[in-house]
């Protein structure tokens, strides 16, 4: 049980990378990148988890009762914001690429070739 969380994080990252490698469409690739990034959420939340502890919100239970690590939760929040902003930026780039080249298949896009 104790290594399950880390294995899940590694597995999520792995399938994300597999998706990126075999991707035939940039929008699919961006989704795979988001899967990769969700591995970091699992990793961070796993690091901060504590058995028999409540959420780090002292509203219903008084301060001093055991609570999980709030720092990693704040980090996950940052992580999600970065992920959302980056996904938007990548999708915008994908839209422009599709407009100019008419395809989003990485196989058919050769960025360094001179356009004839």
């Amino acid at each position: 049980m104790s290594i399950l969380a880390w294995c899940v994080a590694a597995w999520l990252f792995g399938i994300g990378v597999y998706g990126i490698v075999t991707s035939r469409h940039y929008v699919h690739l961006i989704g795979c990148l988001a899967v990769c990034q969700s591995a970091t959420y699992v990793l961070l939340l796993g690091i901060g988890f504590r058995w028999h502890a409540g959420p780090p919100i002292f509203y219903d239970h008084p301060p001093g009762t055991p609570a999980v690590d709030p720092v990693v939760q704040a980090l996950v929040l940052t992580d999600i914001v970065v992920s959302a902003a980056m996904t938007a930026l990548l999708l915008a780039i994908a839209l422009q690429v599709h407009k100019r080249r008419g395809t989003l298949d990485p196989q058919h896009l050769r960025p360094f070739r001179q356009e004839k």
Binding site: M1, S2, A5, G48, V68, D69
Partner: peptide
């Protein structure tokens, strides 16, 4: 070990 965080910061 899962469930036993090392960091004191939190």
């Amino acid at each position: 070990a899962f469930g036993h965080p090392l960091s004191q910061y939190g």
